[in-house]
Design a protein around this nucleic acid. Structure first.
Lengths: 155, 155
DNA sequence: TCCCATATCTTGAACTGCTCCAGATTCCTC
DNA sequence: GAGGAATCTGGAGCAGTTCAAGATATGGGA
């Protein structure tokens, strides 16, 4: 799991343009933040973006995230009962390890192969394009704090 | 994929008691509805329950659903960007086929084995207890209507 | 280097799905 | 039956996200 290389970070304006998006401070900053802090949720990204830029509206953050996802520069993942999270590692069909307690997300390389890495026995007429695998459990920190089970159906 | 047998349906009061729940019309009705109409969301179940019983409060429906889930008689599944859905098929580690467009859900038998049916290469210190597999695609009806791609990041 | 069309951002309100609260009612156990 | 716990009702409240309309900034062409 390689982190973003310096080149990737420098290329951000070019990548935004290549994706047909105008380059604005908010967009460049948010894309960089998604790369350096993958699996952050919208609110964390908004807070971090404000730390760098001074002020960015919540709506601009959501707009930017939508635009990045639509352009294929970011991916949105939604663990059940947790706010949406964003990552820039796309196209490699990896999966996720999610903590039932705190919602922390980690990447896990695909155990099987390229997308869709699994195929159901019976597709029932569906045109399947993706098999999303989520491993649920407890992260080391929550284990260390003695959390032993899922808190309840919606935490 | 066997549907609920008549015996299962008759046994509902006994099953509720066995799970430590008192037997009420709303609970019995909702559990029956979950069995006969798996993957319904709370609102649909509420509507159906009202159709049978005359009136049931929204709160009663949510309470009952929570109680059933907590008691292990039902399972709550939350496809990204769709309201929670409930099913009574539990403990057999099956997976789901979800339509990106309309949110329809179908059961799919586990391709691999018993839970957790897959194991990540690196658990990163997590205590993994479940591998949830969701197959994303388009259902036959949406395909028939010419829907060709996911509508957008949140429908 | 300036201009214009329009993509993007701001502000403020609203929406969905769900939860919580307090009091009234119902049901299981003895 | 009686009593107390569990459950139901109705309404308010919340987080995360989206909608709407006007202001502002960006990028290609003159």
């Amino acid at each position: 799991m390689a982190g973003p290389s310096p080149e990737d970070r420098e290329d951000i304006p070019a990548q935004l343009r290549a994706a047909g998006l105008r380059v604005t401070a908010a967009r460049a900053t948010i894309l960089d933040l998604i790369r350096t802090h993958p699996h952050s949720d919208a609110e964390a990204l908004a807070r971090a973006a404000r730390g760098r830029l001074g002020s960015v509206s919540t709506q601009a953050v959501y707009d930017t995230l939508h635009a990045l996802v639509r352009a294929g520069l970011a991916r949105r993942i939604v663990p059940a009962d947790h706010p949406a999270r964003f990552e820039a590692r796309i196209g490699d069909n990896h999966h996720h390890l999610v903590c039932r307690n705190c919602g922390r997300v980690e990447d896990v390389d695909c155990v099987v192969g390229a997308a869709p890495c699994l195929t159901p026995d019976a597709t029932r007429g569906y045109a399947v394009d993706e098999a999303e695998v989520t491993f649920w459990g407890l992260c080391p920190e929550c284990l260390g704090q003695g959390v032993t089970d899922k808190p309840d159906i919606s935490g």
